[in-house]
Amino acid sequence: MKQRKITAFRIMCLLIAVVVLVFLGSGYRIIILLLSIFSALVFGRLWCGYVCPLGFYQELLSMLRKKLHIPTFHVSLKVKSYLRPLKWIILVYFLTSVLFFGLRPVMYIRPDLSFSSADMSIYKIIIVGIVTGICFLKERAFCKYCPLGTLRGLFNKISFGKIEKDGTACTHCRACLECCPMDIRSIYEERNKSDITHSDCIYCMKCIEACPEQDVLSFTLFGKKILSSKRNIKQVK
């Protein structure tokens, strides 16, 4: 089986980020906000995969689900096409509430923020429960509609981190799509373009880990190849 070194590293990053945010979050809010904006401009949604505490919470849920061998649910193509505009609706709703009403609606849906705030009403607990349930059954379900993520995703195209693919060497084994938490189909289907960075991509590198073909998928940062896929030929324990 594949070794998941990159994922282990990423989980470490998320853990450290959570610890840092919990202890320093309140004191250095401005710095964190600036860092977040800066990282979005330069690396797109990299923040979602390596820093976001809600992302970490969802990863923990998925890890638990995988340990228990509970299958994830797959949404059919038809339903997916209906759900597609949802993330934009949520984004517009989020922006109008923040800019015009001074509200922070995300507070109520995000389990991590709800837990950290003092007042826990029944209404809040129910919503947090529903979101947790969905995220438990579907990997990174919240991230697919997260307004902050959608905003960051706009910068994915101009980000300096790129996921690249060598289409001719791809055998279409679908390993990349099967493990993609964001269900990005173009990574599997694309054969002609080399830059396949999608606006939903959170740079979790799971596809690169899963890809069994030498150098078919790779991650480049500032034009330099950092990670690339390879056939793992280590003996299984």
Partner: peptide, 12 residues
Amino acid sequence: DPVVPDEYSTDG
């Protein structure tokens, strides 16, 4: 081609 399951439930 190898089999690369994301999760080890029967469906996965």
